[in-house]
């Protein structure tokens, strides 16, 4: 018995060391970000400063916010994000339900397209998509230029073709397939049509997985810079701003695009930029953590 006990204690120590060490690997960049944000840039050249700044300052943070035009950028990003995430969750849920509970001709083929959506890298279709939005409309009748218009993000999201939509359709399909059929049968007998059944019976049951998918959708749209740089030139999201932080900094802060700042000193602004761009996500994560980590078990991605 005592051998078992000592093995148990050993296991605990082992587990603690492993988890602690790896948590360090994950948290290190975040701690570094915070540490850099609140130090003066001259501290970067001071070899004794590693974690704890010698000179505290808020000016780096202020300058970064100014260079990224943070409040406007945040508003644009939030508008895009929340809008797209809402549209996407709804459209993917409807589509997923269609695939889960109805049988129709060509279902296998159509579902194959959903799988194809997961597999094809966005980069393959991004160029034709660009021209689609550049000359949007029906040939010969009318065309409009949708580049720099938020519709370039909204329209695909509305029709379940946004960022990682294939994956979301798959998640919803698996989830709805896991719900008992009796639920719907009861609703049918009570005189609900399929649409009413979906709205009144299935959606309330799926609330938790709706939230999980919604959160992931927000995260993926927030982090996207590939699609946004493709379709937006003057509409700036947090991700594209961060991507161009270097030149923005020089332009807005020093009014000179050719100014030379030591790359080591630039790190402070970069890290500050990172910090402000993930701060909203982090706050969301802290409050809704359990929906990220537990929701997915119920959301049906399993099995």
């Amino acid at each position: 018995m005592s051998r078992r006990k000592s093995a148990d204690i050993l296991w605990r120590i082992f587990r603690f060391v492993i988890l602690f060490g790896l948590s360090f690997v994950i948290l290190y960049p975040l701690i570094y970000m915070i540490s850099c944000t609140f130090r003066e840039r001259s501290d970067m050249n001071d070899p004794t400063v590693m974690w704890i700044p010698r000179n505290y300052t808020l000016s780096v943070l202020r300058e970064t916010i100014q260079a990224m035009d943070l409040w406007n950028t945040l508003r644009t990003t939030a508008l895009l994000n929340l809008g797209c995430a809402c549209f996407q969750v709804i459209s993917c849920a409807v589509t997923g339900y269609g695939f889960a509970r109805f049988s129709f001709h060509g279902k296998k083929l159509l579902f194959g397209i959903v799988i194809l959506m997961i597999l094809v890298p966005t980069q393959v279709i991004s160029l034709p998509l660009f021209f689609r939005f550049r000359f949007f409309g029906i040939k010969g009748l009318f065309t409009v230029n949708l580049i720099d218009n938020m519709l370039t993000m909204y329209l695909p999201a509305m029709t379940a073709n946004g960022i990682r939509s294939g994956l979301m359709i798959l998640i919803f399909r698996q989830f709805f397939r896991g719900l008992p059929k009796e639920l719907e049968d009861a609703a049918y007998i009570d005189g609900c049509g399929p649409l009413m059944t979906f709205l009144r019976v299935m959606i309330p049951n799926a609330m938790a997985s709706f939230l999980t998918v919604f959160l992931f959708s927000v995260v993926w749209y927030w982090n996207d810079y590939y699609v946004s740089t493709m379709f937006f030139q003057n509409t700036r999201t947090v991700a594209t701003m961060l991507y161009n932080l270097d030149s923005e900094l020089k332009l807005r802060l020093f009014g000179d695009a050719t100014i030379q700042i030591s790359p080591r000193e630039q790190i402070v602004w970069k890290q500050a930029g990172c910090l402000v761009s993930i701060a909203p996500l982090l706050v969301m994560y802290i409050f809704l953590q359990k929906y990220f980590t537990e929701g997915i078990e119920r959301s049906g991605i399993v099995g």
Partner: peptide
């Protein structure tokens, strides 16, 4: 039920032709 099935996936189908299949073919 089959018609309802098409109804549920209809929006996606239109979107996927416009925003996925045609661009895929174009590329």
């Amino acid at each position: 039920k089959e018609l309802y099935g098409y109804g549920f996936i209809g929006l996606w189908l239109v979107g996927t032709i416009v925003f996925f299949l045609i661009p895929l073919g174009r590329s």
